[in-house]
Design a protein around this nucleic acid. Structure first.
Length: 239
DNA sequence: TACGTCACGGTTGAC
DNA sequence: GTGTCAACCGTGACG
C-alpha cells in the first residue's frame, strides 16, 4: 500500500508501490512525462519505463496512449488550464473538430487537445515551426500531424550529435530544435536545457541507451512486443 | 511477465 | 467570498 503524507502547498503526496513519489490528483512533473515519452521512443518497454521512473505502469500506459493519439505529452488541462471546459474553449473545440473533419483527422483523437493546446499560452515549441508563424488555432495542430508525417526521423533517437539533421522543410525554424533537444518540451516551466534532458535520460538508461541506439525501434529479444510497439509508433507517425 | 482498461480518491478552476 | 460541479490526475487492481 502507498503511504500518504500531506505536503503544505502541494497536497496529499504519496509513495506508490514502486517507491516513486506522487501527488494524488496532480499530474506528473513535465520532465517525468517527457522522459516517459522519450524512453518509449527509444524503444524502452513501458514496463521498464515504469520501473525506472518509478511511475505506475497504468500511468505510463495512459501517457503513452495520449502521446500516440495526440502528440502531446502534457496533462490535459489541470496544470495551467482549467479543470472544466469553459464555453470559450468548448466552442474552440467545435471549431477544431470542424477543421479536422475537413483535413481528415478524427476529432476523437484530440480529446485532450483543448485548453492548453488551444490556449494562447500553447507550447509552440511542441510544434516544429517558428512560434512567430504558428497561428493559435487548429491549423497548428494539423501542421503538427503533418510535421510528424513528413519528419518521422525526428521521433527517432539521434545518438550522435555530430550527425547534422537538416530540416527537410525551410518552413521549420532551426531555433526550435536547440541542437539535440527533443521537439517535446515543457510549456509551463522554463524549458529544461537539452543537456539536462539528455543527461537525465542517460542517467536513467545508463549504458542501456548505447545498446539500444543501434536498434532504437526494435529489441531483438522480444519480437512480438516489438511488433506491437513498432506498429503503434508507425501508426502514430502515420497520423 | 507485459500491457490495456477501469474504478477510485484526490485536485483544480470555471460557474 | 463560498460552494458546486465537471474534467482531469495518478494509482492500483483486474483480466
Amino acid at each position: 500500500m502507498k503511504s500518504k503524507l500531506y505536503v503544505p502547498g502541494v497536497g496529499q503526496a504519496g509513495v506508490n508501490q514502486l517507491g516513486g513519489v506522487f501527488v494524488n490528483g496532480r499530474p506528473l512533473p513535465d520532465h517525468v512525462r517527457q522522459q516517459i515519452v522519450e524512453l518509449a521512443l527509444l524503444g524502452i518497454r513501458p514496463c521498464d519505463i515504469s520501473r525506472k521512473l518509478l511511475v505506475s505502469h497504468g500511468c505510463v500506459s495512459k501517457i503513452l496512449t495520449r502521446f500516440y493519439e495526440t502528440g502531446s505529452i502534457r496533462p490535459g488541462s489541470i496544470n495551467g488550464g482549467s479543470g472544466r471546459h469553459s464555453k470559450k474553449t468548448y466552442n474552440t473545440r467545435i471549431e477544431i473538430n470542424k477543421c479536422h473533419q475537413n483535413v481528415g483527422i478524427s476529432p476523437s483523437s484530440h480529446k485532450s487537445i483543448d485548453n492548453k493546446e488551444l490556449s494562447p499560452t500553447r507550447n509552440y515549441r511542441s510544434f516544429p515551426t517558428s512560434p512567430n508563424h504558428l497561428p493559435s488555432n487548429s491549423y497548428s495542430t494539423s501542421r503538427y500531424f503533418s510535421f510528424h508525417h513528413h519528419n518521422p526521423f525526428l521521433f527517432q533517437h539521434r545518438p550522435s550529435p555530430s550527425v547534422p539533421t537538416n530540416p527537410p522543410s525551410d518552413e521549420i525554424d532551426e531555433s526550435d530544435y536547440d541542437d539535440n533537444s527533443s521537439i517535446l518540451s515543457i510549456e509551463t516551466k522554463p524549458k529544461p536545457s537539452s543537456s539536462l534532458i539528455k543527461h537525465s535520460i542517460e542517467n536513467i538508461l545508463s549504458n542501456k541507451v548505447t545498446i539500444k541506439n543501434k536498434r532504437p525501434l526494435s529489441l531483438s529479444s522480444n519480437s512480438s512486443h516489438d511488433e506491437q510497439t513498432t506498429n503503434k509508433r508507425q501508426k502514430f507517425i502515420a497520423c
